[in-house]
């Protein structure tokens, strides 16, 4: 049992080690400004990764989330710019933009989920397809360039990313709420139990009177919703969207899920682990930028090593369990 605990706690140990390393390397690492920065930047991937945890735990996968976020950002910006003349430069317009992003996320999630559960196509194939579709749509909407929010609206919307309660900005708060609710849902709700059962063995789930298709569809809807929410918080950061928005977010989200100890084959979901995984990935990036030990260009390489290492540790845990 002791060994197993060590494996479960592995990601946390790594996170603590990174924090200590960061503090030793650069005194400004622990400054509130830097912490806010790291957490706020983690928030987008983080919220998406929490949704991804459910999808993966149920035995699915979603490669489309990065493109989906870019597409939703583009849609929201177009919608806000379009209603600006009639509604005016006020929160009404911004709420409409937020609504478009969230609703769009739900619809996109539904499309993914329905193709997977109703048309019975492999999740990898479906979301590889929609990944290309969303990416292409946003590039087309932006006509190959950038979609920008009107200047006045951008100023009005800005505090949603930069503002907050003291140094704790809104994205951090939203991420924290999503993480806590997600953790409770996975561990303590019927939905979470069903998700784990399906990922563990969907035939057993079916024979236990669980509506397998519906639960799987719900995981994609949930993920779509969270991508929408992440977009709502992302748009005010730059006030624009383009064909290169959210590139590789899907892989970062999946990596965070895996580092956190969720099995890629499904069955065991750890939302808190995913949160730790997201933080690990952002911290590596941050530390490399702050310290000049290693070139920041090697960020991807280090993250890659961490991902592989996390999976190796997972496997060791499994073989230890089998004995």
């Amino acid at each position: 049992m002791k060994r197993l605990d060590l494996h479960t706690l592995g990601p946390i140990v790594a996170l603590v080690a990174l924090v200590i390393l960061g503090a030793l390397l650069n005194s400004s690492f622990l400054a509130p400004g830097n912490i806010t920065n790291v957490l706020a930047r983690s928030a987008f991937i983080g919220m998406i990764a929490v949704g991804m945890t459910f999808v993966i735990t149920a035995g699915g996968l979603d490669l489309s989330v990065g493109s989906m976020a870019a597409f939703l950002a583009g849609l929201a910006i177009i919608a806000m710019n379009a209603v600006l003349p009639s509604v005016g430069e006020n929160w009404g317009t911004i709420l409409i933009g937020m609504g478009v992003a969230i609703l769009g996320g739900l619809i996109a999630g539904y499309v993914n989920g329905a193709l997977i559960t109703k048309a019975k196509i492999e999740p990898f194939i479906v979301t590889l397809g929609t990944m290309g579709i969303f990416r292409s749509l946003v590039t087309w909407l932006a006509d190959g360039g950038t979609l920008s929010l009107e200047y006045g609206l951008r100023t009005l919307y800005r505090p949603v990313y930069y503002g907050g309660i003291g140094w704790i900005t809104w994205p951090i708060i939203a991420f924290a709420v999503v993480a806590i609710v997600g953790e409770l849902m996975m561990r303590h709700s019927r939905f979470g139990r069903h998700v784990e059962a399906i990922g563990s063995n969907d035939r057993v789930a079916k024979y236990s009177a669980i509506d397998v298709g519906r639960v799987k569809l719900m995981t994609y809807l949930l993920l779509g919703l969270l991508v929408g929410l992440a977009t709502v918080l992302y748009v005010p950061r730059l006030g624009s969207a383009s064909g290169s928005t959210g590139v590789l977010w899907e892989l970062e989200a999946i990596a965070a899920v895996i580092i956190g100890g969720t099995a890629l084959k499904g069955g065991t979901g750890r939302v808190w682990g995913t949160v730790v995984g997201v933080l690990i990935l952002s911290l590596i990036d941050n530390i490399l930028n702050l310290a000049d030990l290693v070139s920041p260009y090697l960020n991807g390489a280090i993250q890659g090593v961490i991902i592989v290492l996390a999976v190796v540790l997972q496997r060791e845990k499994r073989t230890a369990d089998e004995r």
Partner: peptide, 27 residues
């Protein structure tokens, strides 16, 4: 392959088909 989740605990297996009796948002 259809009866029990072999990698899950006894409790999770026992109640899997009747979870609605044990709550929804918080089991």
């Amino acid at each position: 392959e259809a009866g029990l989740l072999l990698e899950k605990g006894l409790r999770e297996n026992l109640t899997l088909a009747t979870l609605e009796r044990f709550g929804n948002l918080r089991l």
